[in-house]
Design a protein around this nucleic acid. Structure first.
Lengths: 326, 326
DNA sequence: TTGTAAGCGTTATCAT
DNA sequence: ATGATAACGCTTACAA
């Protein structure tokens, strides 16, 4: 930068300004600086800048997995919103809240401008670190009641409740196959939503009609379906509240020659039509994942710009998409 | 860090060492430093460290999209390989080589330890910048002949050639629907592979039997199929060499009541079984995307560790998975 | 609109 | 195994 300044015949400070806020520098100077930069092949050192300013233009995102295409689309939304803004994305995965704490620590050591979290349960230390950092923190995995800072999401509870109500009204006895809810508020919320809908409908909840699977591994939905029906043959519909379980289950039904929805109705969480149009057969909850990622980023950047009136909580709605399977 | 050093009764340099290479510090000192760190709630400043060392522990990955689940799995592979190594992932998307150059510039301004590139064509400037940076650069999108530095990938050409040969042998006239190959070596290679296989088989290539689609947008494969068959009704098989085209096309055939593979055989590139087990019906090329992402990262980190004998080129193989559709 | 000076919190290097 | 010292290349704060 020293070279650039000398060649352009200005001070380093002017070069710095021309780079970061061109509008505060006269057009002529700006041009001379640009020429000098091209002449020496100068590459801005954002690390030095970060040290001087005690913060970088890095936005950290702690996600859970990219194996699920719809969670990947949250990340895609964040990427798209962040592109061409001068910010960069730092991405980490956390499979547990302890993991998350470590990733948050690692991120914080790079003095990021903001942090986005997909998980909604955090260790006490993680919350403390984030609050102490003073940077915008956006939670995106669920519409949490008491966000650390900001929340941009949808209600997993409402979604599961609405879908269960839809199924119960239409088919009667509804089973539930979800992700292991221990340690994860999102899956807990879905489970609670299911139970709430049964309660409203005056249907007794039965443990044997509810299954939780440890992972979204391939084929899990088919086995779960078989287990559940063996225990409760009078089940007329099953709500697969996670991953690609519903799609697995549908394949299983076809294999066994069970009519869908005649013998059994099937509904899923997350609509994969946007990923594979050919999968547009399953009744599902459609959640605007991509938009949530985008908006979360926009909200964080708006806050960094010092904009006023930024809502602490941004709720996205979901849709129940009735299709052939329910 | 000053505080930590004072409390532990050592110099800053010792604290720094205890943090970065614990083995060079005595066990007793290490413990005292650890206690002091906990006592003051010290958070390492990797930005200051990065400035002093003129490089960070950031690994940059320039991907193309996360909309395709299999490209997302490359990123997942990178994430998994990088987790718990002390390195962090910086992720950017580039839709063109100009885009890529800009992202590379942005990454380089953070003085990363290594850079991974999914694209395999680059601007002259991008190549120059990367070479001048002196850091490991791994190309992962195709088994390029002249890598900038390292390459970890599979041969798109061979894969397309093998699948085309399989189809031609079994069905005769084979059509091709691919991604727009202009400006993208990966798609060019697939197209060349298709043409090479026809040549071997002594079948004349016909422009009307080949289509390139500008994007992997939903449903594109179905329309392409209809267009292609209208122009060349004697086509007996179509190789959908990208995205979810094959899945779209299969859905279209079912809609129109065309027997598959009776009337028309269908094959795809990339096998989505790992994402949706229920899609395990389409004959496809299976590419170990996740493993490529993992290995690319491992190779980069090995190089950073100064390991010897790191291959400039790592070739992954693919498989042709014959299924119901071809 | 531009410039001056100080200092951000580490690590490299050399010394002990 | 540990310490002293000098950078590292910017930005903040203030001045002109």
């Amino acid at each position: 930068m020293e070279d650039v300044a000398r060649i352009a015949g200005v001070s380093q400070m002017t070069v710095s300004r021309a780079l970061r806020s061109p509008e505060t520098v006269s057009a002529a100077t700006r041009r001379r600086v640009a020429e000098a930069i091209a002449a020496v092949g100068y590459l801005h050192n954002r690390i030095a800048g970060g040290l001087a300013a005690d913060r970088t233009s890095i936005v950290g995102l702690v996600a859970t997995t990219l194996k699920n295409p719809l969670l990947a689309s949250v990340v895609q939304g964040v990427c798209d919103a962040i592109a061409h803004t001068g910010y960069q994305l730092m991405l980490g995965m956390a499979e547990s809240i302890e993991d998350e704490e470590q990733v948050i620590r690692d991120f914080l050591s790079y003095r990021p401008a903001a942090i986005l979290l997909h998980r909604t349960m955090h260790t006490k230390v993680a919350r403390t670190l984030l609050k102490a950092s003073g940077i915008p923190v956006v939670e995106i995995g669920n519409l949490v009641a008491r966000p650390i800072d900001l929340v941009v999401s949808f209600s997993n509870f409402d979604a599961a409740e609405r879908m269960t109500r839809y199924l119960a009204t239409k088919y009667g006895q509804v089973g539930y196959v979800g992700m292991r809810s221990e340690g994860d508020e999102r899956f807990k919320a879905r489970r609670r939503g299911y139970l709430a809908a049964l309660r409203e409908a005056g249907i007794a909840a039965e443990p044997e009609r509810m299954l939780e699977l440890p992972s979204a591994g391939p084929g899990g939905g088919g086995d779960a379906l078989v287990t559940l029906l063996a225990a409760r043959p009078d089940t007329r519909a099953v709500f697969f509240a996670g991953g690609a379980f519903a799609s697995d289950a549908l394949a299983e039904c076809r294999r066994r020659g069970w009519a869908v929805p005649g013998r059994l109705a099937i509904a899923g969480f997350d609509d994969y039509e946007s990923v594979f149009p050919s999968m547009a057969a399953i009744t599902a909850v459609r959640v605007p994942r991509y938009e949530i990622g985008r908006r979360a980023t926009e909200v964080a950047l708006a806050r960094l710009r010092g904009e006023a009136g930024i809502p602490r909580r941004t709720e996205f709605t979901f849709e129940i998409i009735p299709r052939e399977t329910a």
